[in-house]
Amino acid sequence: MAHAVETGVKHEDHESIKIAGFWIFLVQDVLLFATLFATYVVLRNHYAGGPTPKELFDVPGFVAETFILLTSSFTSGLAALQLNKKSVGGLITWLVITGVLGLAFLGFEINEFTNMVQEGATISTSAFLSAFFTLVGTHGAHVTLGLGWMLGLIIQLARRGITPVTSRKVSVLSLYWHFLDAVWIFIFTVVYLIGVM
């Protein structure tokens, strides 16, 4: 069946078209985050008499989050490389490691948010905090969705092994995961580092 079909587009090309479209989706998501960043930048000094970033941000916390996420980006790359070795076992292993690191990242972040809320710094306290929670929280929501996606993909890999379709899905997920780390680089820089300066 693989040879006798003609869509005007070769079968392998069909998968690369899905990847091409995903790059464009990522561009759209970059602009979404850019808008959240712009909002944060504009509102970052609007403390309304409430807590400031220097008072709130916990250095070990965000440093840990940063290295965990960076490592998970690296391990997701190692997972994708397993495609070339055609090793489903290796692929799933590295994906699971990536997922665990992702969960750890979320754990740290939820802990951070909870501590802030308990100290009286909520989304309703000031415009600065609204912007902070929304920007960082949107990133966290993207990570959560990515983990759900990863779980589904792991199940599909376990059932079907490495095929052109599952390969493409791994490539797309890994692009998404790297993109999330790229966004975090800027959150780390613009929100946390500038906040504690």
Binding site: L32, T35, T39, Y47, S130, T134
Partner: peptide, 27 residues
Amino acid sequence: PVLTVALFLLFMDRFAGAHFFTMTHGG
């Protein structure tokens, strides 16, 4: 994407008590 965020922030003001565009608390 810019509209998505603009509407989402207004939504956050109305649903989560955020202060992006309010007249108080630095909005």
